[in-house]
Amino acid sequence: MKVIFLKDVKGMGKKGEIKNVADGYANNFLFKQGLAIEATPANLKALE
Rank of each mutant, 00 (worst) to 15 (best):
E38D: 05
F29G: 04
K45C: 11
L35W: 10
K32Y: 10
K2E: 13
N27C: 14
T40V: 04
K19P: 00
A36T: 02
A36F: 03
G13D: 01
G16D: 07
L35N: 02
M1G: 02
K45A: 15
F5V: 01
Y25H: 10
A42T: 04
K19M: 10
P41G: 11
A26P: 05
G16M: 04
P41S: 13
K2H: 08
M1W: 04
K19D: 00
Q33F: 14
A22Y: 11
M12I: 14
N27F: 14
N20A: 10
G13E: 01
Y25I: 14
E48L: 09
K19G: 09
G34E: 10
K19Y: 05
T40H: 04
K14P: 01
I18L: 10
N20D: 13
N28V: 08
K15E: 09
N43I: 09
F31I: 12
A42N: 10
L6H: 00
G13H: 05
G34S: 09
E17P: 01
K14W: 11
G24Q: 12
K2A: 13
E38F: 06
K32W: 07
I37H: 02
T40I: 05
K45L: 15
K14N: 12
A46S: 14
A22H: 15
I4K: 03
D23I: 14
Q33C: 14
G11Y: 08
V9E: 01
M12P: 02
E38S: 05
L47Q: 09
K15C: 11
G13R: 00
E48Q: 12
N27Y: 15
V9P: 00
L30K: 00
E38N: 04
N20P: 09
D23N: 14
G13T: 01
G34Y: 06
V3R: 00
L47K: 05
F31N: 02
A46M: 15
K45W: 09
K7G: 04
L30M: 02
N43A: 11
G13I: 02
K32P: 05
K45E: 13
I18E: 04
D8N: 09
G16N: 07
I37W: 07
D8V: 03
K45T: 05
G24S: 12
G34V: 02
A39M: 05
G34C: 12
L35G: 01
F5M: 07
K14T: 11
L35M: 09
G24T: 14
K14Y: 14
L35D: 03
Y25G: 06
F5Q: 00
E17F: 03
K45G: 07
I4Q: 03
G16F: 09
M1D: 01
N28K: 11
G34R: 06
D8Y: 04
N27S: 12
L35H: 02
A39S: 05
K15D: 03
K32S: 09
Y25T: 09
M12D: 09
D8S: 07
L47R: 03
A42I: 07
V21M: 07
I4C: 06
T40C: 03
E48D: 13
T40F: 02
I4T: 02
L47C: 09
A42D: 12
Q33V: 11
V3D: 00
I4G: 00
V21Y: 05
A42E: 15
A36G: 03
E48M: 09
P41T: 09
K45D: 15
V9M: 04
M1E: 03
A36P: 00
Y25S: 08
N27M: 15
G13C: 06
A39R: 00
I37N: 03
G11F: 07
P41F: 12
A42L: 09
N43G: 02
G34Q: 06
L44M: 14
M12Q: 11
M12K: 07
L6C: 07
L47Y: 14
N27H: 15
A26D: 09
P41N: 10
E38V: 06
L47S: 08
N43K: 02
G11A: 05
T40Y: 05
N20G: 07
F5H: 01
A26G: 06
A22R: 10
A39T: 02
F29V: 15
L30S: 00
F29L: 10
G13F: 07
L6F: 04
A26M: 09
V21G: 00
E17D: 10
L6V: 09
I18M: 08
K32F: 05
K45F: 10
F5W: 01
A26W: 03
K32M: 08
I4W: 03
F5G: 01
K15W: 03
P41C: 10
A39N: 02
L44T: 05
L35F: 05
V9C: 08
G11E: 07
E17C: 07
F31Q: 03
M1P: 04
G34I: 03
K7V: 14
Q33P: 03
I37D: 02
E17W: 06
K19V: 09
L30R: 01
L44C: 07
A42W: 03
K32V: 11
G13Q: 01
G11P: 03
L30P: 00
V9R: 02
V9I: 09
K19A: 11
A39H: 05
A42V: 11
V9G: 02
Q33H: 15
G34D: 06
E38K: 09
A39W: 08
K19I: 13
I18P: 01
Y25A: 08
M12N: 05
D23W: 15
K19R: 11
Y25R: 05
K2G: 02
D8Q: 04
A26Y: 13
N43D: 04
G24I: 15
K10M: 12
E38C: 06
N20S: 14
F31T: 04
K45V: 11
A22W: 08
N28L: 10
F31C: 05
G11W: 05
E38G: 05
N28W: 11
K45Q: 14
G11H: 11
L6Y: 01
G16R: 04
F5K: 00
I37E: 07
L6S: 05
V9Y: 09
G13L: 01
I4N: 00
F31L: 11
K45H: 09
K10H: 14
E17S: 06
K19F: 05
V9T: 02
M12H: 12
I18A: 04
L44V: 07
K10V: 13
G16H: 08
I4A: 02
E17L: 04
T40M: 03
L35P: 00
M1F: 13
A36I: 05
L6K: 01
K32T: 12
F31H: 09
V21C: 11
E17T: 10
K10S: 10
V9A: 04
L47M: 13
A39K: 01
D23H: 11
L47E: 05
N43Q: 05
A22S: 15
D8K: 04
G11I: 01
G34A: 07
A46I: 15
I4L: 13
N27L: 14
V21L: 07
M12S: 06
L30T: 02
K7F: 12
L35I: 10
I4Y: 08
G13S: 02
K14S: 10
M12G: 06
V21W: 04
T40R: 04
P41A: 11
L30Y: 02
K2M: 14
L47A: 07
E48K: 07
L30G: 00
F5C: 03
K14C: 11
K10Q: 15
V3G: 00
Q33S: 10
V3H: 00
T40Q: 03
M12T: 07
G11Q: 07
M12L: 14
N20I: 15
D8H: 06
L35Y: 09
A26F: 12
K14E: 08
N43V: 09
G24L: 15
I4S: 01
E38R: 08
L6M: 04
M1C: 13
K15F: 06
G34W: 05
E38L: 08
T40L: 06
Q33I: 11
F5R: 00
L44Q: 06
A46D: 12
M1H: 00
A26E: 07
K7S: 10
D23C: 15
G16I: 00
F29K: 06
L44Y: 06
M1V: 13
K15H: 06
I18D: 01
A42S: 13
I4M: 08
L47T: 09
L35E: 03
N20Q: 14
L35V: 04
N43Y: 03
L30H: 00
A42K: 10
Q33L: 14
D23L: 15
V3T: 00
K7N: 06
K7R: 13
V21R: 00
N28E: 10
I37V: 12
Y25D: 08
K10W: 12
E48A: 15
I37S: 07
L44K: 06
K2C: 15
G24F: 15
A46T: 10
L35C: 05
F29I: 15
F29H: 12
F31K: 06
F31V: 08
E17R: 02
N20M: 14
V3Q: 00
L44P: 03
G16A: 06
A46W: 14
I18C: 05
A39D: 02
K45P: 15
F31M: 04
M1S: 06
P41V: 13
Q33E: 15
V21K: 01
F5D: 00
G24K: 12
F31R: 03
E48N: 13
E38H: 08
N20W: 12
V3K: 00
E38I: 06
K32C: 13
L6D: 00
